[in-house]
Simulated assay, not measured.
Amino acid sequence: MPAERGWFDFDAVDFVTSDHHFGHARISELAGRPFSTVDEMDSALIERWNSVVPTDAVVLHLGDVALGPINDSVALTAQLNGRRHLVPGNHDRVSSATQSRKAIERFAPIYEAAGWVILPEIIEGTRRGHRLMASHYPYWGDSQEIDRHSKHRPIDKGIPLLHGHTHSRDHGPDGNQFHVGVDAFEFRPVAMGVIDRWLGGEHSPTRVEIPNEVAALLHRLYRPEAAAAWLCGHNSHLVGARPIDLLKLNEIGDVVDALNSEVQGGMS
């Protein structure tokens, strides 16, 4: 059975992925997948996984691996290459977020028989010296209008996070979280080299060009360390958005307005 949380060796991982939903008859409709039947989807998911994952690779799966008739859909995953680790998601029958302890004890052997090592629902460790966390759930965001399972989500303390759950077609970084779901990666696992490049600096505010008017206001208000924290923090003047994300979208005016509001606040 999975523990509630654990330290994990991310250096041992070759690929990361999430949200296959093997056996789920409605997921193509719900997530806009290009498959006519669940059998077509399952076959394509297996083929695309095995086309990139060698038999001796280590794969970290961030949840919702299978749905549908669970004995059959989990059994399908035995065809997948690699040594496979599962961080349970809300649809996995070994998830403490949605299943009773008795149910987890019942279903865990089915996953293990198909080759899965069941991990805690939030894992933390390092990758090539960089701090890293992984969970099925992002810090924020959902496939629905509200953020579900809030008690089981990791708390955003600035640590880079790998996640699934959203079924977004937008892949990769969103601030200090990185979506690895198959809906955004042509239904294939993501090589950890992609994550390494992100951890190497692409999630840092220094990778975004800071406009002069923003830089001047930041210099007026904050020391460099505090300025970086302000850029990456959720801002009440921006209705909870992070300034760094708005700058990536070239929404410079809104960030300037937020800074001017803080300047005025400091003068009052």
Rank of each mutant, 00 (worst) to 15 (best):
Ser150Arg: 14
Ser135Ile: 01
Gly158Ile: 03
Asn71Met: 10
Thr55Asn: 06
Val74Asp: 01
Glu121Lys: 11
Leu161Ala: 07
Val74Trp: 02
Ala97Asn: 10
Asn176Cys: 06
Ser95Lys: 05
His167Ala: 07
Val87Gly: 05
Glu121Gln: 15
Ala103Thr: 12
Lys151Ile: 00
Tyr139Met: 04
Gly63Glu: 02
Glu124Leu: 00
Gly129His: 09
Leu161Met: 08
Gly63Gln: 05
Gln79Trp: 01
Ala97Gln: 13
Lys151Ala: 15
Gly115Ala: 08
Ile155Leu: 13
Glu105Trp: 11
Leu80Cys: 10
His167Leu: 06
Gly63Asn: 06
Val182Asp: 00
Ile104Ala: 11
Phe107Gln: 06
Pro54Val: 04
Gln99Ala: 11
Thr55Pro: 00
Val52Cys: 12
Val117Phe: 08
Pro160Ile: 07
Phe178Cys: 14
Ala78Ser: 15
Pro88Asp: 05
Lys102Asn: 10
Pro88Tyr: 06
Val74Thr: 03
Pro160Arg: 10
Asp147Met: 09
Leu76Met: 14
Leu62Thr: 01
Gln177Ile: 07
Ser73Ala: 14
Ala78Gly: 09
Lys102Glu: 15
His91Ile: 03
Asp183Ile: 02
His136Arg: 09
Tyr111Gly: 04
Tyr137Gln: 02
Val180Tyr: 05
Trp116Leu: 05
Arg93Met: 14
Gly82Gln: 01
Ser73Pro: 06
Ala66Leu: 05
Arg93His: 14
Ile122Ser: 00
Lys151Asp: 15
Ile70Met: 14
Ile123Gly: 02
Ala78Trp: 02
Ser168Trp: 09
Ser96Asp: 10
Pro173Ile: 06
Pro69Asp: 13
Arg127Asp: 01
Thr166Trp: 03
Val117Glu: 14
His179Val: 01
Arg127Asn: 04
Ser100Ile: 09
Glu124Gln: 11
Tyr111Val: 08
Pro109Leu: 09
Asp174Glu: 13
Leu60His: 01
His179Tyr: 14
Asp174Trp: 09
Gly164Ala: 12
Leu76His: 09
Leu67Cys: 12
Thr98Tyr: 08
Gly125Glu: 03
His149Pro: 00
Lys157Leu: 09
Arg131Thr: 09
Gly63Val: 03
Gly141Asp: 03
Asp170Gln: 13
Tyr137Asp: 00
Gln79Ile: 02
Lys102Cys: 07
Gly172Tyr: 05
Pro88Cys: 07
Leu62Ser: 01
Gly89Met: 05
Asp156Leu: 01
